[in-house]
Each structure stands twice: as C-alpha cells, then as structure tokens.
C-alpha cells in the first residue's frame, strides 16, 4: 500500500509563454503537501500536468502505486483518474445544468468506482449535509461555498488515493475558506488520502500542511520540509507576511 508522486524538472509552455521551468515536486504516501504561490506562477499548470491535461515539454512525472510505476506525462487523463488520482479543479468546473446528485454520480463514472457508489455517495452526503438537502437542485444555482463542497464531493466519488486540490479558496469568503480547508483535512483522515493542494492563501493552507513548496515564476523557489521552515522563509515573509 504505497503511493508516491514525483514530478522532476517539469517544463510546460502555452505557446511561447513558459509556465513551468524545471519544477520538481514529490508527494509521499499519507502526506498533505501544499503548493504555495500567488496568481500566475504556475500552480494550476503543474496540477494540470499531473492530470495529463497539459503535457510537459520536458521532465518526468511518475506515480508509484503499490510498487508499479506509471508515467503520468504519457497517460491520458481518463487513465490517470483510473490510477486513483482525482483533481478538484480551479473554478470547480461543475456541470451547472445537472443536479447535485447527477454531478456526484458522474464522479463515479469509472467502472472501478461504480462498485462503491452507494458507500461513497453516503460518505459525500455525510461529509456535506447541505448536498443531501439539495440533491435535486441544479449545481449552477448553488452558492460558491456549496459548489466547492460539491466539487470536493464529486472528486471523492471516484475513490481516489491521491487528491489534488487546485485553489479551493477562490471566490469564497474567509469563513468559508477556513471551513473548506478544515473539511479537506477531515476527509483526508477519514479516507486515508494523500493530498497535494495548490493555494495562495498561505495562512489557511499551512494549517493542514505537513510541508510545502513555494512556486515563483514557474520555478520551485523554496522547499519547506516543515511548516515552521515555510513560515520563517524570506520569500514567504515578503509575499505573504508583509515583512521586508
């Protein structure tokens, strides 16, 4: 039961624009790792590379599942999902004209996930009671916070082992951000997940992190092996803590 994600020297481009420049990130089994950085520094691009949505032009992305190695840089997204990786995408990307329950059911589209659909649906409703109350409501008509919960619930429906969360705080009020982050931690423990979260809200993100990376202009500027290391880092002080 071992899981390990290692992205090494990943370069990615959008046309002539360099989005990632030799970025290396590892996530070990059971960890919560945060990827910190302000807007436009390549957090989402890295997440997309991990899911096979954006193809890196150089570098390798390897996922080791129970002793077998998989090259994520070559697999199509569908198969990466099949390996037990789920992404809660930036902006949530729900199906706005489908109901809450239909969105959740689509999360279990993979044949392997369908076997556990009843259990997972019950878990999702237990974790987010508001989703159960609104199961027949169209996803697009819910508030931002509820949509974020649905996006997380939908990702859990595929029975993932590695959960990637891209900017869960976008568009949410401070209170909701705090609740969402706490929820991710709670779910992580409950499902035994490994979590990689990209976030620009430093204070909230480090609350649940074991360690983290700071990404600046597509490069990993600092790797903090503990939260304390992150907090005392000069770049962090400059960017987030208002220090000189």
């Amino acid at each position: 039961m071992a899981l390990r994600l290692a992205a090494t020297g990943v370069d990615a481009r959008y046309g002539a624009v360099r989005a990632l420049n030799g970025a290396s990130v590892t996530v070990e089994d059971g960890e919560t790792v945060v990827l910190l950085g302000t807007n436009g520094n390549g957090k989402s691009t890295l997440m997309k590379c991990l899911m096979g949505i954006v193809r890196p032009v150089a570098g390798s992305i390897e996922l080791e599942v129970d002793g077998t190695r998989h090259d994520l840089a070559r697999l199509p997204t569908e198969e990466i999902v099949g390996l037990g990786v789920a992404l809660v995408p930036e902006g949530r990307r729900l199906f706005p004209k489908l109901t809450v329950e239909e969105n959740l059911m689509l999360g279990a589209f993979r044949k392997s996930a369908r076997a556990q659909i009843a259990t997972n649906l019950a878990f999702a409703y237990e974790a987010f009671p508001v989703l159960a109350e609104r199961r027949r409501q169209l996803a697009g008509t819910m508030s931002g916070g509820q949509q974020q919960m649905l996006a997380i619930g939908r990702a859990l429906m595929s029975s993932p082992r590695l959960l990637l969360v891209d900017e869960p705080s976008v568009g949410l009020s401070p209170l909701l951000v705090s609740q969402t982050i706490t929820k991710i931690e709670e779910l992580k423990k409950k499902f035994g997940l490994t979590v990689l979260m990209a976030e620009q809200n430093f204070h909230q993100a480090v609350r649940i992190a074991d360690r983290g990376y700071i990404i600046v202009h597509g490069e990993i500027a600092f790797e903090g092996k503990t939260v304390a290391e992150l907090q005392s880092n000069e770049i962090v002080k400059q960017l987030y803590l208002g220090g000189g």
Partner: peptide, 11 residues
Amino acid sequence: QDEAALRLMGA
C-alpha cells in the same frame, strides 16, 4: 457542458 471536466471524471 464541460468536456474537460468530464475527462476529470475518467470519461
């Protein structure tokens, strides 16, 4: 509605 999101569902 969202082709890319559907891909994330493993379809």
